[in-house]
């Protein structure tokens, strides 16, 4: 136990040092360029971020974006799970869904965003994009998990007449969990990237995308970097939160 805690601390220290190393590289390149418009110094960016933290509009933009992107991700989880269960049980559903999932997976994001702007309001664009980006990964992974379920355990449960609740909890969820965690880890990062990109194109009011766009228009590179740092941070926090919650299932 103590060994594992020491090992965890060591890993954490190594990770922090790695981050600090890249901040150092950033600082060196920034000093060399000596142009805040091209590459602001890390300290300038951090100061800008702190000044943003004091503004009410910052929190409104962050909250709006989080709600849309996470909602899109959660809907894709629900739909992805339902579709994969259907595909697992009915060959017809699997064949029918296969081209649709491939289509969503391989269509360029920019095409989807522009097309979606024709159909829906820009406020809902990042929700839809987040949903579409995560769906193929969630669906494919869960289906793979279902396909790999130990059928001998299912037969055992059938012979012992184990009730559905226990079957789902101890066999199905347990066997699918690693696939769902992998899907979450991959797709949530993509949701943030694609969701914010969609906001930059759609420019919904009071959103991170709109704030990023404004920073670019006003050539406020420090603010652009500050927003980027913050997006990386919340993306990391949400990924860890979801993975932790899934592991507790």
């Amino acid at each position: 136990m103590r060994d594992s805690i020491t090992r965890d601390n060591k890993n954490l220290i190594i990770r922090i040092l790695a981050v600090l190393f890249w901040f150092f590289v950033w600082q060196v390149i920034g000093s060399y360029l000596d142009n805040d418009l091209l590459l602001p110094m890390p300290l300038t960016v951090i100061k800008t971020l702190f000044s943003m933290l004091g503004q009410k509009m910052f929190y409104i933009a962050v909250l709006n974006t989080i709600i849309r992107i996470i909602l899109g991700f959660l809907i894709s989880c629900i739909i992805g799970i339902i579709l994969s269960i259907l595909s697992y049980n009915f060959r017809f559903a699997r064949i029918l869904l296969s081209p649709l999932i491939s289509f969503i997976k391989s269509t360029p994001l920019a095409s989807i965003i522009i097309l979606a702007l024709v159909w829906i309001k820009s406020q809902n664009l990042s929700l839809l994009i987040s949903f579409l980006v995560a769906l193929p990964t969630i669906y494919t992974n869960i289906l793979k998990g279902l396909d790999n379920i130990n059928l001998k355990l299912i037969k055992m449960a059938q012979v012992f007449r184990v009730n559905n609740y226990k079957k789902v909890k101890f066999i199905y969820i347990h066997e699918i969990k690693p696939y769902l965690i992998a899907a979450t880890s991959i797709s949530l990062g993509f949701c943030w990237k694609a969701g914010v990109a969609a906001e930059v194109i759609g420019l919904p009011q009071n959103s991170i995308g709109e704030a990023l766009y404004s920073s670019k228009i006003y050539l406020n590179t420090a603010e652009l970097f500050a927003w980027t740092l913050f997006i990386i941070f919340i993306s990391f926090v949400f990924e860890k939160f979801f993975i932790y919650t899934l592991q507790k299932l």
């Binding site: 001998k152 355990l153 449960a157 012979v159 012992f160 101890f170 066999i171």
Partner: peptide
């Protein structure tokens, strides 16, 4: 029915008590 299968067919990632509680 209650069965001892040729291969044990146990929930390997759970403890002994959970395996018994299952059935």
């Amino acid at each position: 029915l209650s069965v001892v299968f040729q291969e044990n067919r146990l929930l390997e990632d759970f403890d002994a008590i959970t395996n018994l509680k299952l059935v």
